[in-house]
Design a protein around this nucleic acid. Sequence first.
DNA 1: AAACCGGGGAT
DNA 2: ATCCCAGGTTT
Length: 311
Amino acid sequence: MLQQTQASRVAERFESFVGRFPDARTMAAAGENVVVAAWEGLGYYRRARLLYAAAVRICDVHDGEVPSSTEALLALPGIGRYTAGSIASIAFDCRTPIVDGNVIRVVARLEAIDAAADDPALVKRCWETADALVGAAKSPGVLNESLMELGATVCTPRLPSCDRCPVQTCCAAFRSGRAASMPRPKSRPARRIVHLYPVVLRRDDRVLLRQRPLRGIWAGLWELPSVESADPLEVPAIASGLGFKVDDLRQVETFKRLLTHREVHFHVYEASTRIRRGHWCDRVVSAELAMAKPMRSLVDRRVWASDWPGG
DNA sequence: AAACCGGGGAT
DNA sequence: ATCCCAGGTTT
C-alpha cells in the first residue's frame, strides 16, 4: 500500500483494510474483487490484484505465513527489491538494504551526486550505500526506517531543513550548498489528454454499469458505459461507440481530472435504452463494485443523489 | 531501458 | 503549475 503512496495517505486507510483482511487466508478467501473494492481510491489498482495474488501464493506455498527471507519475499507477486527488503528488515530483522524515493534523495545529497532521481547509476549507487549502512547498523529495521523518515521529514525535495539535520556534517551537498538542487527532477513526459464519454442509463431503481478492459487505465474497474477517445467526439460517434443502442443522448455535465500520466476530460451524458442485458445495478451493488475515484463521485452524484427513487 | 499505472499533498 | 510519493510489472 505504501508503494508510490505517501505514508500519511496510507495511514487513513490502513487500519480498516487490515481489519478486513487480517491475514493471508482471509484475503485469499475474500477474492480478488473484494480486495480491489477495498482498495478503491488508492490508485495503482494493479497493486491490489498483486497483493491478492501474493496472499493466495502465501496460502499455497507458505502455509499461510508471510515468509521471512528476502528471497522468498522477492518471489511473491507485487514484491520487488524495496518491499522485500522492508519486510525482511523491519518485520524479521534481516540485514537487507532498502532504497525508495526518500533514500535516493538522502544518498544523492550525502554524496553530492548531481543526477536525476531516476538515473540508473545513481540508483545503483544508492543500493550500495544503503547496503553499507544497514551492514553497519545496530538494528537493520531501525536504520532503514530512519533513512526514509529523514527523507520524508528533514531531507525534503524542495526546501530541505539542513539546519536541523542530524547528519548535516556528513553531507557533501550541504557542505557545497547544493542540497536543494539535488537530485535533479525526473524527466516526465507530458500528460496525454483523454476524452471520456460516460453515459447514465437508468431503469427502475438501477443504473447500467460495466467493467473496464483488463488493460490500460483503471483496468478491470467498473464504470458507467463509456466511450474513450483521444479527440473530442460528436453525439453520433458517442452513440455508435457504446456498442449498444441508446436514444435521446444528451449532455448533462463536463469536468476534468488530472492524473499523473493523463488529463481526463469527462463529458457526461444521459440517455434511454431498451437494452436489458448487462449489469443493471442497484445502489447496494454499485457501492460494492470497485470504481475509479472520479467515476465513483460521478455515479454517487448523478445516480444516487437523494432526489431520485433509488436514493 | 522505457513505458505503464492513480490520486492527492506540498510548494 | 510543478514535483513528488515507504515501486513493480510489462514490453
